[in-house]
Simulated scan of single mutants.
Amino acid sequence: MRRFLLLYGFLLTTLVTHAQSTADIQKTIIDLEQIGVNGILTADTNLLAQIWAPEFMVTTPRNTIALNRAAVFKNQKQGLIDYSSFERVIEQMQVQENLVITMGY
């Protein structure tokens, strides 16, 4: 996870430092988000462990809350989470110096 976060930080710092346009930054973030989508679709827990913080929290497909990354992985191993499709839709993105905030579903 630290490697991926460092990659995010380095990438964002590089993008801001080189004064790329907001559109370029948004495209990069969309590409990085797709890495997570692919990890979810393939149930690649090694990849997801690198990009999700241990305290990652999410509402599950059964409308319960997985309180951390380990709970999500446990649900996957029990067969409670098995996506045949998954789409991440970013409705808004805000670029603030060396931070990008996304929201959507």
Results as ranks from 00 to 15, higher is better:
residue 65 I to D: 08
residue 29 I to C: 06
residue 76 Q to H: 04
residue 20 Q to A: 14
residue 31 D to C: 12
residue 103 M to Q: 14
residue 94 Q to N: 13
residue 73 F to K: 04
residue 65 I to N: 04
residue 102 T to Q: 04
residue 83 Y to E: 07
residue 91 E to C: 03
residue 48 L to H: 05
residue 31 D to M: 12
residue 86 F to H: 14
residue 6 L to N: 13
residue 66 A to G: 08
residue 14 T to L: 12
residue 50 Q to L: 09
residue 50 Q to C: 08
residue 68 N to C: 04
residue 20 Q to N: 14
residue 104 G to W: 01
residue 53 A to T: 07
residue 65 I to W: 01
residue 26 Q to E: 15
residue 46 N to L: 10
residue 84 S to F: 08
residue 91 E to V: 02
residue 32 L to C: 02
residue 42 T to D: 03
residue 53 A to I: 00
residue 52 W to Y: 13
residue 70 A to D: 15
residue 50 Q to V: 00
residue 45 T to G: 09
residue 35 I to P: 03
residue 8 Y to E: 10
residue 1 M to C: 09
residue 62 R to I: 08
residue 25 I to C: 07
residue 102 T to V: 09
residue 66 A to T: 02
residue 96 Q to V: 13
residue 35 I to Q: 00
residue 56 F to T: 13
residue 89 V to G: 00
residue 53 A to K: 00
residue 91 E to G: 12
residue 64 T to V: 05
residue 12 L to W: 05
residue 21 S to Q: 07
residue 87 E to A: 10
residue 94 Q to H: 14
residue 39 G to H: 07
residue 39 G to I: 04
residue 88 R to W: 08
residue 59 T to W: 01
residue 8 Y to H: 11
residue 87 E to L: 09
residue 4 F to W: 15
residue 42 T to I: 00
residue 43 A to I: 11
residue 23 A to L: 13
residue 68 N to W: 02
residue 91 E to S: 09
residue 98 N to H: 09
residue 27 K to Q: 14
residue 84 S to W: 01
residue 17 T to S: 11
residue 87 E to Y: 10
residue 46 N to K: 10
residue 46 N to D: 15
residue 50 Q to M: 08
residue 6 L to I: 13
residue 100 V to Q: 01
residue 14 T to A: 11
residue 74 K to N: 15
residue 35 I to M: 08
residue 17 T to Y: 12
residue 24 D to K: 10
residue 2 R to Q: 14
residue 87 E to G: 06
residue 28 T to G: 08
residue 91 E to R: 06
residue 52 W to I: 07
residue 91 E to P: 04
residue 38 N to F: 12
residue 97 E to I: 02
residue 65 I to Q: 02
residue 89 V to K: 10
residue 63 N to K: 11
residue 59 T to V: 13
residue 50 Q to W: 03
residue 57 M to Y: 04
residue 29 I to D: 04
residue 65 I to L: 11
residue 87 E to F: 06
residue 102 T to M: 00
residue 70 A to Y: 07
residue 67 L to K: 15
residue 40 I to K: 12
residue 45 T to H: 01
residue 41 L to W: 03
residue 81 I to P: 03
residue 103 M to D: 10
residue 68 N to G: 02
residue 31 D to E: 15
residue 89 V to P: 00
residue 5 L to F: 11
residue 94 Q to P: 05
residue 15 L to E: 06
residue 33 E to A: 13
residue 24 D to L: 08
residue 82 D to I: 05
